[in-house]
Design a protein around this nucleic acid. Structure first.
Lengths: 339, 339
DNA sequence: TTGAAAGCGCTAACAT
DNA sequence: ATGTTAGCGCTTTCAA
């Protein structure tokens, strides 16, 4: 039961004061090469590691950041989290993960906990709605991803969802369809941006928005793959019956697009001849669709690069010079085989 | 720039000593109802939150656990992490996530960091090989998932991979095939267990293990979906040409099974008539395969239940009563449409 | 029922 | 170049 060793023990063992040990650990202040060597040796021999809680208490910083996400099972979020965590670790930060499961109460609980743990920064990813900011820790840098906050002082980075929708809609129109947009039951700022991009493009191309232009699944329908597919079959039948040109669908996510493709398959609708589909995200599933899914790719590398460097720089210049900054990341159309 | 408020401030504001404040916060020791009310009110008014670093330093515990995984992009791992995190949060622990990207050096770095942060417990998920235990923090409870450790004193929980392979192999045999097993380039204790289950079942059923019984992709082939599928096509052609009964394949993961199905599709091989496939994991992709993938389901609810309650109980009875415990979780065969 | 004070492990200001 | 010490915010023993 080897108790954990403290700086004091190291000081005794190397015959110097704790101040000196602290200096060599932090490579700060001056000390002779010989003491440095000695102390370092003792540290290694006893494999001493600094006590981050004591250090944090003293320095008023934890070298920890919190990351709040709606759902780790969503591969897009998991991707973001993984990348951010890796980048932060390289800079000496550890990250506490908080999966809110889209529950606002839970989110509040997490925020309280994170404040209590004195996180140096916060990354807030998406989320149904911009939660009541009351429980947001005071005075620490925050960057939001895909979650617009009314609070002006929060940095924002996210894909240019609007642009993505424009790209998709244009492509579908160029392919000779009068596209419809199909969306799930969930709503968020990124979703509304996409819908807006769709609408604007339709109008710009002189296509009238009809009843079937924007189709929204109910929560119940969206609940499981099976109910979703069933509904999607109905939708497809209706769409196909109304049109003698190919039908185009911009699906709000790759998951939805994949379900759509399955529904089409079971209806013996041929893709991309009778039906053309574009998804959003370029999630791993896109390459497992049949045919492989044409989609809008979100550049998670860039998103996480910006997010983490924003956060780091504003954690370091404690004055937050980047307040209110907004960064929109370009998306791109990945041409595969569903258009 | 409202500085964070401390217990001292609360004490002053409520006209009591810090000791009393501490007592009411922790609901411990005795104090009058009236002081309790007063203190609580002041706390609420100033929305004070306890400083976890100070508390941790004093109590020698951080209420934090570390969770080390090979790859957050793998949906199976992400699932585990999400579930564990949620369960731990309910019990008052926050979790630091460490995505090693399968890099042993990085893993060591993470372990050092976690030790430094004084995590109260550790969850180690899978990983290529049981890493050199040298940098594992001393004397804290650890539970491994899908990672057998030579260290006797570490709890283990994982699926019964052997049983899963037996189930799959039997099913394939009963369906009239002489199954082959196809595996990726990666190796781990769970994979070897599955291979063992396959072999044993083959032998028990009086089927000879041939050259084509166990097929292993090289790292290069396994590198991208495209190279993988190309190789899988070769394999399928060979397998189909050798047999005039249906061909059965037990794929070591759902991802591999999905690639196999795609390869089969492009070869116009009909599933499940000419080819029968069983995967492993029941990952989200299984329901997006065409036909929907028959697979072995790992019960991540049970796995994470055991893992988190083992960990919690041994963090609480500081004496680790559960040392060396091993828990194998049953898997089940999910019948869908590829057999 | 409440308060005073020591001490968890560390850093930095001040002294030498 | 190195040592002494106060204090970060908390809990807990001891005293009142």
């Amino acid at each position: 039961m080897s108790k954990k060793i403290s700086i004091k023990k190291i000081a005794d063992l190397s015959g110097v004061s704790i101040a000196t040990v602290s200096r060599v650990i932090n490579n700060n202040g001056r000390f002779s090469e010989s003491t440095k060597a000695k102390v370092l040796r003792v540290i290694k021999e006893n494999d001493y590691t600094i006590n981050a809680m004591a250090q944090g208490l003293r320095n008023q910083k934890s070298s920890t950041v919190g990351i709040v996400i709606p759902d780790l099972n969503n591969s897009f979020f998991a991707d973001l989290v993984g990348k951010i965590e890796q980048k932060l670790f390289l800079k000496g930060y550890s990250t506490i993960i908080c999966d809110t499961n889209r529950d606002p109460n839970k989110e509040n609980g997490y925020l309280k906990m994170l404040e209590s743990k004195s996180v140096d920064g916060l990354i807030l990813i998406s989320g149904s709605k911009t939660s009541d900011t009351s429980s947001i820790p005071h005075d620490i840098p925050i960057v939001c991803i895909d979650r617009q906050s009314q609070n002006q002082n929060i940095m924002y980075v996210g894909s240019n969802h609007y642009q993505g929708a424009v790209l998709a809609t244009q492509r579908l129109i160029e392919a000779g369809t009068t596209p419809s947009l199909v969306t799930g039951s969930r709503i968020s700022t990124s979703i509304t941006d996409r819908i807006q991009g769709f609408k604007t493009t339709m109008i710009k191309k002189n296509l009238r928005l009809q009843e079937t232009s924007i189709i929204k699944l109910t929560e119940e329908q969206d609940n499981s793959p099976d109910t979703r597919r069933q509904e999607l079959r109905k939708i497809l039948r209706k769409l196909l019956s109304k049109s003698d040109t190919p039908v185009g669908v911009f699906a709000i996510s790759d998951a939805l697009a994949a379900d759509l493709l399955i529904a089409a398959h079971s209806l013996l609708i041929s893709v991309p001849n009778e039906l053309k589909v574009i998804g959003f995200d370029d999630s791993p599933i896109a390459k497992y669709c049949y045919p492989e899914l044409t989609t809008i790719k979100q550049d998670t590398n860039k998103i996480t690069d910006y997010a983490s460097s924003y956060l780091i720089s504003s954690m370091q210049n404690h004055e937050n010079t980047l307040n209110g900054k907004i960064k929109l990341i370009d998306v791109s159309l990945i041409n595969r085989s569903t258009v």
